[in-house]
Design a protein around this nucleic acid. Structure first.
Lengths: 220, 220
DNA sequence: TTCATTAGTGAATGCCATTCATTTATTGTT
DNA sequence: AACAATAAATGAATGGCATTCACTAATGAA
């Protein structure tokens, strides 16, 4: 019987301690529970030394991409069998928003690098297929996906911006009367911002796709 | 005549070397020219030591907020006198997008903290006023502003994501046929993504505002 | 059995944001 | 006019971070 190594001057372990999958999973967990990614802290979480990561990954950005993959893999995506554009848009928007909302600290980092994780590419490919079947012309697929994704991220970022995107220092309220009124109104009226955004992009995309945007000027 | 100090073991200078304004201006310039903010490098640019900043500012985030202020101050904002919602939306979207496009590296950082710079608050107050005059109900002003801002940032981030938001490794193209087709189509067809987005949010906002989104479920 | 490859370690490097004691100038009070 | 309080700079130090590299021990193919 071999003891699964505990001490003894370390070389390759009998059983692997890391994999790209576990790194991605734990990185995502870190984004959800702490307020950002730190490689030393990620190493602690995994009971491993920081230099070990670089046997599986070329750098920090790749760990972030693995976190994206992990996020996408545990996403539950609806059928997308419908050919109804409005329904499709709302289903995809909701899936994305639900997934993104759990890891708001990850989102700004996702924005700054291209999607390369296979699981994520597969997801967007699925979206592209659904939109294509629903009649969206090829040259509008990418803009449609980008719009949806960007909107879902925007909506999910609220959690990070301290409840209001505008922080007016009490004393200066009279300098910004319209904004102040708007803030009070949205607070009392309890507007559902997610529903609003869903309505906006659903109606907007339907219109823009229907009228066919090409090179010079769009629809009036 | 007093020589404006050059050497001699430093205390308070006869003439101030820093101000919140110059810090904000140079930080913004740094975001535009380099690929991020570094306090040591910002100090070099301004011919000053890094510790000096903390006499004017409580930390890095405040410098970022000053950069936002600087961005907003040099923005040229149209009249916004029209009561036409569609025109208003497009004018504001274009102003924001134009300003944001010059400093893409700043945008992810702006997303993660509330707007507190007076110049920026004044700008959004102006927007709120214009929308209010155009008939947007108070409780939809904030969602409208958030949607516009988020869309403008999303559109401006393209510059940072290496030309395409999806990076499919040549060999795997056949695994993601719809996405691949979509990429080819948007490349050849040369779609104007800005015009598309402008159409989307203009139509979408008009619809969502018109139908009045409240607490439970939105418009169909 | 041998040997190249692989997956871990530990130490070092260089960058970064922030703090603090110190120095010099300015401003306001008497 | 003297003086205290405040303000704006410096330099040095601290602790965190991502990354690199020489090293070691296990694996697996020839």
């Amino acid at each position: 019987m071999q003891t699964p190594e505990t001490t003894g001057r370390m070389g390759r372990p009998r059983t692997p301690r890391l994999s790209r999958k576990t790194i991605g999973r734990e990185a995502l967990a870190m984004f959800e529970q702490e307020e950002g990614l730190s490689i030393p802290r990620l190493a602690e979480r995994l009971g491993v030394r920081q230099s070990s990561f670089y046997k599986h990954v070329t750098g920090r950005n790749e760990i972030i991409e693995l976190a994206r993959g992990s996020l996408v893999e545990r996403m539950l995506v609806p059928e997308l069998a419908s050919h109804d554009l409005d329904l499709l848009i709302r289903q995809i928007f909701d899936s994305l928003r639900t997934a993104y909302s759990l890891a708001p600290a990850l989102l700004p980092l996702l924005l700054t690098q291209p999607v390369s994780h296979p699981a994520a590419l597969a997801l967007y490919d699925k979206f592209a297929e659904a939109f294509s079947r629903a009649g969206v012309p090829d040259h509008l697929l990418i803009p449609t996906l980008e719009t949806l994704d960007s909107a879902a991220i925007g909506a999910s970022l609220d959690a990070i911006t301290m409840e209001s995107a505008w922080n007016i220092p009490e004393a200066d309220r009279t300098d910004f009367p319209y904004l102040t009124t708007a803030q009070r109104a949205v607070a009392t009226h309890q507007t559902d911002r997610f529903a609003f955004l869903a309505d906006v992009i659903a109606a907007g995309l339907r219109t823009a796709i229907g009228s066919g945007t090409a090179l010079p000027g769009g629809a009036p």
